[in-house]
Amino acid sequence: MGRHDAVAAHKPVTVKPCDKNFDDRPVTPGKRELGFPKRISPASLWAADPALFLLVHLSRRTVMSGTIARTVPRRSRQHRRGTATVEAAIVLPVLLTLTLGTMDLCSLFFLRETVTLAAYEGARAGVGSEATNGDAIARVNEFLSQRDVETGGNAVSIAAPGFDGADTLENVTLTVTVPVSGNLLLPGSIYDGWTVSSSVTMRKEYANQD
């Protein structure tokens, strides 16, 4: 049997039609088929889209392969990073000083109010019946201790005749003085010699009996 006879005697194969027609599928063209060049010249970009040309020109970018890529040199980025470091080194100490100064100013107002209240509390404790200078001083120290105020020693002074020898309805003046150094955030050497003082005058309610 020859070759042609074998082919003729071969059983025919039935080809079933496919449900999907692959020839009708849309073909996505590539960038070359769409006409995107590797690099668009400024003249071509201006002719195609003036708005895009202005955007690219103002932002100093280059259109490559259909996308916008930054063309900032690495040296320029390092220079800007170094400039930011120098600016931070200059600004941070000033900002820190202003912040601490503001906090110290608020603390100074608080210290002044504390001293005023301590003087009032001490005078109020001294004008009572049979109250003495020791009672007034003890009350002042107790109040200042509750507020964590550094007194630096004897912070209370009482003008004569004092609560011990004052007659009935006689005025007695009590003064509280505390140093600023040690009661604020900034170093104490800045406030050397600074003090906060407050005086309160009250009448002795009843003279002490000997």
Rank of each mutant, 00 (worst) to 15 (best):
A89V: 03
L54H: 08
T67M: 07
A69V: 09
I137W: 00
E113V: 09
S76M: 07
F36Q: 05
P50W: 11
K38A: 14
V91C: 04
R74T: 02
G30V: 06
A89D: 01
F36W: 10
P42M: 02
V127H: 14
E121C: 04
V115W: 01
R75D: 15
S65T: 04
A43D: 12
V94T: 10
V72T: 13
S129H: 09
T97E: 11
L92E: 01
D49P: 07
V115G: 00
R39I: 03
R80D: 11
T62E: 14
L45K: 04
R80F: 11
R77C: 12
C106T: 12
N133M: 02
T71E: 11
A47W: 06
R32L: 11
E87P: 04
R39L: 09
P50K: 08
R112A: 12
I137S: 05
R77T: 14
R124P: 07
F110L: 06
R112V: 02
A123S: 15
A47Q: 10
M64T: 14
S107G: 04
A69Y: 10
D49R: 06
M103H: 12
T116A: 14
P37C: 14
R60H: 15
L92V: 08
G30W: 10
L45Y: 04
T28Y: 12
A47S: 06
H79D: 07
R77S: 15
S107Y: 03
I90G: 01
E87Y: 08
V127D: 06
R81K: 08
E33M: 03
T132N: 01
V127Q: 15
T85F: 12
V63D: 08
V27K: 07
V115M: 01
A118I: 02
G82H: 08
G30Q: 11
L55Y: 11
M64K: 09
F36D: 05
A48R: 11
E87S: 03
A51H: 14
K31Y: 10
V127L: 15
V86N: 01
R60Y: 11
E113K: 10
P37I: 06
V86S: 13
P50R: 14
E33V: 08
R112H: 06
T71F: 05
N133L: 00
L108C: 06
R77G: 09
K31W: 10
V115R: 01
T114N: 13
L108F: 14
R112F: 08
A125P: 01
A119S: 15
R124H: 06
T28I: 10
L95G: 15
A69T: 09
R124C: 14
Q78R: 13
V86G: 02
Y120Q: 14
V56T: 05
T97A: 15
T62R: 10
E121Y: 13
L111S: 00
G101P: 00
L52D: 04
Q78S: 09
R112W: 02
V72G: 05
R124Y: 13
A48K: 12
G35D: 04
R32K: 13
L54A: 07
R80H: 06
I90Y: 15
